[in-house]
Design a protein around this nucleic acid. Structure first.
Lengths: 247, 247
DNA sequence: CGCGAACTTGAGGCGTGTCAACCCCTGTGG
DNA sequence: CCACAGGGGTTGACACGCCTCAAGTTCGCG
C-alpha cells in the first residue's frame, strides 16, 4: 500500500470517514449505500485540514490536486482579473465542495478563503476519479455536483445581469437561509460571516448600497439588522421583493 | 445488439463518428488516442440532429437524456426566472458542448436555441457515463469540460459584477474572436449571429447601450460596424478598453 | 481598553435604463 | 418592378438607480 497518502501534507491533517460523518446526507456521498460508503472510505483516503479565519484554502495559480468538502465553517471563492478587479463568486458552507475550478487546467483558477475558523475534508482528485470509474453512484454524484454548480452560476448571472439592488439582496438572503435551514439552522435568525463589502462584491454592488438596502428592508419591516446579526421577520415579503414587487 | 439506438429519434438523425470528424481536436474527444476514439465510436452511438434557425435544441423543463456537441452553426443558452426575467448565459459554436445543465436534475434548466441553421451530435449521457468509467482519458476530458464551464461562468460573473459597458462589450468581442480564430476563422472580420438585444442580455445591458457602445468603438477607431458585420481594426486597443483604460 | 476595521448615512454625480422617433434592410406579394 | 410591412438597429433626451466621496459611529479583536 502506498503509505504516502497517510503522510499529513498540512499541519492539522488526520484520516476521516464519510460513513461516520454527520454531513454524509448533504455532501459528496449522497445516494451511496452503506456498503458503497464503507468501500470508498477504504479506498479514498481523505484527510482533514484546518483553515483559520481569513486564511486561504487555496489561491489562483496553486497546483490542483484535491477537492475539498467543507466540514465545519464558512468559505468564499473569488476570481481576480489581470487588472486587479476582484469578484466574489460564491459562499460555501458545510457539505459543499470546493476546488472544482482546478480540474480543467490542473491549477486553481480562483481564491478560496475561510471566513471563519473552518475544517475541510481533503479529497485527492486522482483517487476520486479512479473510484468514480468503479462506483457508478459516486460518478453520478460527482457529475451531479458539477452540473448543479454550473446551474447555480447561471442563476447568479441572471441576478447580476437583470436585477435591482433590492432584488439581489433578497435573493442572497433567501438563498442563504434556505441552505442554512437544510443544515438544521434557523431560517430566520442568521449571523452573517462576511462583510458588507464581500456581499457587495458577490452581488455586483458597493458596500454602501448593501448597507442602505439592509436599512431599507428594516424600515419596510422585512427584517431586523444589527451589523451581522439578521433576523428575517417577513420571508414572504422578501420573496415578493425578489419577484420584482417593487417595480 | 440494441437496435433502438439506430432508430432516428428526430427527423434528421444519422450515425456519426468522432474519429472522422473535423472537430475532433476541439470537441469532446480531445486528447484521446486514435484507438480510443475508434473504440468510443463503436460504443457511443451518437446521432446527428438538425436545428433550424430560431428553433430550440431543448428547453428548460425538458427531460435530460443527452449532451449535444455543436457540429455546425451557432447557439445561445438562456435562463428564465419564475417572474419572467430572462438572461442569455452563453453563446456556443462548433465543438462546444450543450446540455451540461441537465445532469444534476435530469431535466434541462435552461433553454438552448439555434441562432442559425445548425447541426449537433447527440451524445446519450448514460452511454457516455458508462464509457467514461472505462476510458480514463474520456473521463478526464468530460471533467475538464465541466470544470472549464464553471470557470467560464465565473469569468462572466466578474464581467457582470464589476465592469462598465465598454469593458463588457470589449470582453465579449475579444472572447468571440478568439474562439472563432481557434476554429480557423478570421479574428478581425466577424459576422455576428445574434441581435443587439441578445448581446445585451448576455452582458447585462440594454440593446440601446450595446448599439451606442458599438458606435463609440467605431468613433474611437477600434472597429467598423455595419449591422451585424464587424471588422476589428485595433484589437490591442480593445484589449486596453477591457483592462480599464478608460477609467 | 484602545485602535483599526466595519458599518451607517448623506449629498451629489455619473453611467446606464427608458421612452421615443427614425432609418435601414430584407422579404413578400401585387 | 415597386409598395409595403416588420424586425432590427441607431440616435437623442431625459430619468433614475447606483456609485463616489466624505463624515461620523460602532463593533470587535488583540
Amino acid at each position: 500500500m502506498d503509505r504516502s497518502v497517510f503522510r499529513p501534507i498540512h499541519t492539522n491533517a488526520c484520516e476521516v470517514e464519510c460513513s461516520s460523518c454527520n454531513l454524509r446526507e448533504i455532501c459528496l456521498p449522497v445516494g451511496l449505500t452503506r456498503l458503497e460508503m464503507e468501500y470508498i472510505d477504504s479506498r479514498l483516503v481523505a484527510t482533514r485540514r484546518k483553515v483559520a479565519r481569513g486564511a486561504p484554502l487555496y489561491q489562483a495559480g496553486d497546483r490542483f490536486e484535491s477537492l475539498y468538502a467543507v466540514w465545519t465553517g464558512f468559505f468564499k471563492t473569488a476570481v481576480n482579473s489581470q487588472d486587479g478587479r476582484s469578484q466574489v463568486t460564491g459562499f460555501q458552507l458545510g457539505g459543499e465542495l470546493l476546488g472544482l475550478d482546478g480540474i480543467g487546467s490542473r491549477r486553481h483558477e480562483v481564491d478560496a478563503t475561510a471566513l471563519e475558523d473552518s475544517q475541510v475534508c481533503v479529497i485527492p482528485f486522482e483517487a476520486l476519479e479512479l473510484l468514480s470509474a468503479e462506483v457508478a453512484s459516486l460518478q453520478l454524484q460527482l457529475h451531479r455536483i458539477m452540473s448543479r454548480e454550473i446551474v447555480r452560476n447561471q442563476g447568479v448571472m441572471l441576478l447580476l445581469g437583470s436585477m435591482y439592488a433590492e432584488e439581489r439582496l433578497a435573493a442572497f438572503l433567501l438563498n442563504l437561509t434556505n441552505r442554512l435551514q437544510a443544515r438544521g439552522f434557523s431560517a430566520s435568525s442568521v449571523l452573517l460571516r462576511m462583510t458588507r463589502e464581500e456581499i457587495g462584491s458577490f452581488l455586483g454592488l458597493t458596500l454602501e448600497t448593501v448597507s442602505r438596502t439592509f436599512s431599507k428592508f428594516q424600515a419596510d419591516g422585512l427584517l431586523f439588522v444589527r451589523n451581522r446579526q439578521i433576523r428575517i421577520t417577513d420571508p414572504v415579503g422578501l420573496q415578493q421583493v425578489l419577484n420584482g414587487a417593487a417595480h
